[in-house]
Every structure is written in structure tokens, then in C-alpha cells.
Write a protein that binds this DNA or RNA. Structure first.
Lengths: 236, 236
DNA sequence: TTATTGCCGATTGTCGACAATCGACGCGCA
DNA sequence: TGCGCGTCGATTGTCGACAATCGGCAATAA
């Protein structure tokens, strides 16, 4: 009897939230950009109350910050923030890999399989964007395989901020062909149920890649300290 | 010239948030309790908009949940939720202990010292409440010693939910005199800079204690499945 | 010239009112 | 009696308006 899917009931606030998150993660709204309630309300054709709710959610997700009586802005991250994010993410992925190795369901294993396959094929296709997407997807698959709702939430919060970081800095990505070599040991440890190895490898991988990102950001920070010690911010 | 401290400027929303959080963590508002905007607005003598904002913060902190068009309620946790919380907390404390052992500042070490001293003295005083407080404080000191802002936030979110759990279930706490023996190895590993041992010990301690809590909750759940399969919830 | 002060535009904080939605109760019908 | 359905109260979703606050600018005085 059930033929029709339930229609997607989305509140205005939810729509606005999705729109804003999308804009931030893709870089359309770049780091540090100001988010004025009235302007957003006009653009999205809704009221300030709706926008406000969406902005609160954005703050909860770590994508925006609020300064009382002053305004909201897209989260702007420093190299130290990147260090925090990387250490947390490494911890999460270590935990997830361990749990996944210990108790992944067959369905989760299939999903992990598929994600790894996608990673391998995207690596050979030599399309950097596709490789990056597959990379992220594989990591998410590990988290999902842990069957741990709160872990998914916390991980999401951290990884989204890392996305801002990557979108705002000129993303440096390693050669797609290396991706398989980097992830294959983790994948193998999980599917063979080697919890300790899975945790250690996953943590080490995230920390290694993170170290490159942090180094890149520190260099960028050192370079920009001189040019812009205090400059009036440009209007949109 | 600076003699006066800045006066504490607290928005109505912030006051309301503090009040509600306090009520939830102390159990005044017990798990599953409904939070109606109008009722809270009346009680706290403010408007619904203010209450709404505070409730959104509560949700972000994991202390409340929202069901669209139906209402808000204090987070109600199952034994499985407890498992999630414990695994996350163990991961956080492991990371924190490792970082604290590696890079704690002298000030942080002093704070850790003080917290451990307080734990020891409260253990001899035989006051369960004081011991529990000192226990929590010591763990928070470890997190603080990691000098990792986001870790503090994530930890706070998890530990607050555990507080709900402890407040709602009849809190079972181990003998205060055992507290020193349980925490002393962790403390020692941190101050001696043994990062690996600190991480392992901290994680193991949280998981051990957490296992007791989870077992207690599972037993309680099994016992209550029969008496209340479906009962109309009591009105306040 | 320079520090202080008052003012002004911009933005958020707070509020009350109306609309949309949900769950439950009770009526009507087979 | 049991099921389906409309209705109703309760609660949140959304909105526009007004108040509070902030940062910067300009006028002023030493």
C-alpha cells in the first residue's frame, strides 16, 4: 500500500539553514563575511525571526559566530583553530575506526566497500574535485560504520569547519593516486576487525594530512601579517 | 586607571539559559519534562522569543530536544545513549590527558594539583556529594590543562548529558576512598609527561566507570519495560 | 593638534499577534 | 462494538514593530 514517499516537509527555517550552510561550505559566503539578519531576510524572502533561528543553528554547527548587538559572521579560523580541529578529528576517526572494526554491520561494510571503490576509481580518473569528494565520503563512511549517532554529530561539526578552512585557503590536495595507498591500510584493518590497528592508522592518517594543512596555514598567516595589519574591511 | 571591573552584562536570553540549564542539571526539570514556551515565558517573566533562543541553545548543548509543532522537552536518555556518551567522553579524556601530559602550562599544572588535592581531601571527608563534585572538577581540570578550546566545548556537551543521566537515575557512586586510587595514576602520568600512559589510563578509567553506569541503566530499563508499556504522561 | 564628548546610522534584542500544525477527543456509521 | 473522520484545544512557526546597544564620525575645547 505504501507507494508514495512522504513529501519533504521543510520549514522555512530549515530551508534557510540549508541555503546558508551550502553557501558557506562552498565558499560563496567566505570566512569572515558578515551576515546581517535584515539583508538575509530580504534575500531569502522570509522574516528576521526565521533567519535568526537559522543563524543560531549555524553557530551551533560551528559555521558562524555571533557578536552581541554587532552582528553575525561566517566563522573565521586561524592555524591554531586548524590544530584543534585536526586533533579532534583524528580522535573521532580513531574511535570510529575502532568501533567500525569491532561492530560494523554488513550494510555498513558494503557502504564502506562502495566508498573505498569510489575512492579508487576517482583516483585513476585524475579529477581532483572528484577525488576530494570521494576522500571525504570515505571518511564519512567510516564514521557511519561506527553506528554512533553522537559521534556523527560531533564529527560533522568538526569536519564542516575544516571544510571552511579548505575553502578559504587555496586548497592543497595531495595527488589522487596517493589516496588509495593512504586509505587502503585503514580500510583493511577495519574489514579484518583489527580494532587497534584501525584506530592507530586512522588517527595517524588524519594527523599526517592535518599537519600539512596546518603548516600551510601557518605559512599563509606569517605571510599576511605584514600586508594587512589593520585594514577597513571591504563592503559587499 | 582601570580600577573597576566591567559590569556583568547579561542579556535576558543568557539569564534564561542559565536558569534553565541549572534546573535541568540539578534535576529540578527532570528528563523528559516538557518545556512549553509560553509557560516558561510566564515563569521567567520574558517573551517567547527570548525563551525560544534559550531553548535553541539548550538543544545545541544537548540538554533539550525539539519536536516540530509539538514542543520542547528535556533530553531523555537511554542506556544506548549512555554508551555513546561514555565512549565519546573516554575519547575526549584520552586526548586531553595526552595533550596535558605533553604541553600543560605551569598554571594548568597548579590547577590540576589543586583539583587532585581537593579530590583527596574530599575522599577522606566521606561526604559523597563533595566527592562527586571534586571528581567532576578533577576531570574538568584535565580537559582544561589540554589548552584546547574546542575540546572543552565538546567535552562540556557530553558531560552535561551524563549529568542528566546521573540526575535522573539514582546516582550510584563508588566509595570516595577509592577515588584517589582510581585517579592517582592518571594524575601521575600527566605530571610526569607520559603522554601514552596518560591517554590510556584516562580512557580506561572513564570506560570502566562508564561500564558501571551503563550496566545500571540497562538493568533499570529492563525492569521498567514491564510496568509502563504505555502510560499517559502526567501533567505538571 | 589632540583628546573628549555627544550624536547618528546600523544592527541586534525583545515583544505581542496571527497563522500553521499537531495530537487527542468524541461523534457518527457500519 | 469497532473503525474512520471531523473538530478542537494546545503549541509552535512566522511575522512586523519598537527598544536597546554598538561603533564610528564630527564637533568642540584645551
Amino acid at each position: 500500500m505504501i507507494l508514495l514517499e512522504p513529501i519533504a516537509r521543510k520549514s522555512a527555517e530549515s530551508l534557510a539553514l540549508d541555503r546558508l550552510r551550502e553557501a558557506i561550505l562552498t565558499g560563496t559566503l567566505s570566512a569572515g563575511a558578515r551576515l546581517t539578519e535584515t539583508a538575509l531576510a530580504d534575500q531569502l524572502a522570509t522574516s528576521r525571526a526565521t533567519i535568526r533561528t537559522a543563524l543560531h543553528h549555524l553557530v551551533a554547527e560551528g559555521l558562524a559566530v555571533q557578536v552581541p548587538y554587532t552582528g553575525w559572521m561566517v566563522t573565521s579560523l586561524t592555524a591554531n583553530d586548524a590544530w584543534e580541529l585536526v586533533t579532534l578529528r583524528a580522535s573521532f576517526e580513531g574511535l570510529a575506526a575502532s568501533l567500525a572494526a569491532e561492530r560494523a554491520t554488513p550494510a555498513a561494510r558494503d557502504a564502506l566497500d562502495a566508498a573505498f571503490g569510489e575512492l579508487a576509481s576517482s583516483a585513476t580518473s585524475r579529477k581532483p574535485a572528484a577525488a576530494t569528494t570521494a576522500d571525504f565520503a570515505f571518511h564519512r563512511a567510516i564514521i557511519a560504520a561506527a553506528a554512533h549517532e553522537r559521534l556523527v554529530e560531533h564529527y560533522r561539526r568538526v569536519s564542516q569547519q575544516i571544510s571552511i578552512l579548505i575553502a578559504s585557503s587555496n586548497a592543497l590536495m595531495s595527488d589522487p593516486v596517493l589516496l588509495v595507498d593512504q586509505h587502503e591500510p585503514i580500510y583493511r584493518a577495519i574489514v579484518t576487525g583489527n580494532t587497534d590497528a584501525a584506530a592507530t592508522l586512522a588517527r595517524a592518517h588524519v594527523e599526517d594530512e592535518g599537519a600539512k594543512l596546518i603548516a600551510h596555514l601557518r605559512a599563509a598567516e606569517a605571510a599576511t601579517i605584514k600586508p594587512a595589519p589593520k585594514r577597513k574591511e571591504a563592503k559587499s
